[in-house]
Design a binder for these strands. Structure first.
Lengths: 106, 106
DNA sequence: TTATCATATGAATATATGAACATATGAGTA
DNA sequence: TACTCATATGTTCATATATTCATATGATAA
């Protein structure tokens, strides 16, 4: 049997997986997006709600939401003139929650 | 009782937590660092091992390891002329593993 | 149908990041 | 001690990213 430390059979991650994983973490790597997702733990919010609660420019919020929407981390629905955003990826939100808790307790 | 969507009691994350969390995810948000950490699932490797296995410049590996070391995601020990790196944060490595598996199955 | 309001988009800019090269460092060993 | 080798560091460059301002879009309500 071959030694683990010198294992010639090591299988690298394929490029697509690498891309998906890095993109996922990139979404969580920015303080503004973390603040938005953290707010969405509480429920559903319009762009304006988010903008006012977090004191961020409307366009900034909109740009970040587009990013999160492209990765399917959030979903939205229209109600009247407003568009309400909410979380749409349990797995990623769980990881965020875990990591926040981890950070809070150290 | 106040409506959830308009909750005046919402507690934002404090700045330090926000920083730690974003830094942690930043470490995992780059394909090169993911490849290095993924390799470290297999055990302990010298800078040269990593450089050769992953076909990366020595200085690039060294820079990335410093980043990971600053966040205490890896540790090292010297043996002879080489320095061997290994994982040093179970929690983060677990999250990486989870997310890789998640990506692989979708 | 038109006006209005909420949201999205585009362009510009400042900053952050990743990778490369050249070279310094410093422990091990001859 | 002096040399060598593995690793670390400083600098530079190209690219990516976050944010802002100005404006477009498009659905709703008058």
């Amino acid at each position: 049997m071959v030694e683990e430390l010198n294992n010639p059979e090591y299988k690298e991650l394929d490029e697509e997986t690498l891309f998906i994983v890095s993109q996922t973490f990139k979404a969580l790597a920015d303080p503004t997006r973390i603040r938005i997702l953290h707010l969405l733990f509480e429920g559903e919010f319009s762009v304006n709600d988010i903008s006012e609660t977090l004191q961020l420019r409307q366009s900034n919020v909109s740009h970040q939401l587009r990013f999160l929407k492209n990765l399917r981390l959030v979903k939205y629905r229209r109600d009247g003139k407003s568009i309400y955003y909410s979380q749409d990826d349990e797995h990623v939100m769980h990881i965020l929650q875990q990591t926040i808790n981890h950070a809070l307790h150290y």
